[in-house]
């Protein structure tokens, strides 16, 4: 997998984790009561890691990432059976059949999101 696509996926997963901790009461309860986690500390740690990983992206990718992040909660969209699951538009065959499978950074021509090809 392309190194920066992997970073983008990780950032997105960390942001999802943060959103869930912030917005889902049940998630907070489980993490506090079952795992003894301090939610405030966890949110701070996630924030720091996201910033650190965002800063590790090269300028052109970070610029696109920042633009997308202002519009969409998730900037990487899975491609399943040739469809971008960000905007539900078919992606170019050349992209969806990428022989290298996520070895290049690809974008959706319709919504602009980074694409992650799911097996």
């Amino acid at each position: 997998m392309h190194q920066h696509l992997e970073t983008l996926l990780e950032i997105q997963d960390l942001k999802s984790q943060k959103t869930e901790l912030q917005d889902t009461e049940t998630e907070r309860q489980v993490q506090e009561e079952v795992f003894n986690i301090s939610i405030d500390d966890a949110l701070d740690a996630l924030d720091r890691k996201v910033v650190e990983m965002e800063e590790s992206l090269p300028a052109p990718i970070r610029s696109r990432y920042n633009r997308l992040a202002k519009r969409y909660p998730r900037v990487v969209a899975p491609v399943i059976r040739g469809t971008c699951y960000g905007c539900f538009v078919s992606v170019a065959t050349a992209v969806s059949s990428d022989a290298g499978r996520n070895e290049e950074i690809e974008y959706c021509e319709s919504c602009g999101r980074f694409l992650y090809l799911v097996d």
């Binding site: 996926l9 997105q12 997963d13 999802s16 984790q17 869930e20 079952v34 795992f35 003894n36 986690i37 301090s38 500390d41 966890a42 740690a45 996630l46 990487v76 899975p78 399943i80 992650y116 799911v118 097996d119």
Partner: peptide
């Protein structure tokens, strides 16, 4: 890294969400 998922009694519940899990 946020805190161990080892909840005691010899049991752990490692867990995560990720786009790579379909």
């Amino acid at each position: 890294n946020l805190g161990s998922t080892g909840i005691g009694k010899g049991i752990a519940i490692p867990h995560c969400r990720s786009l790579v899990a379909n």
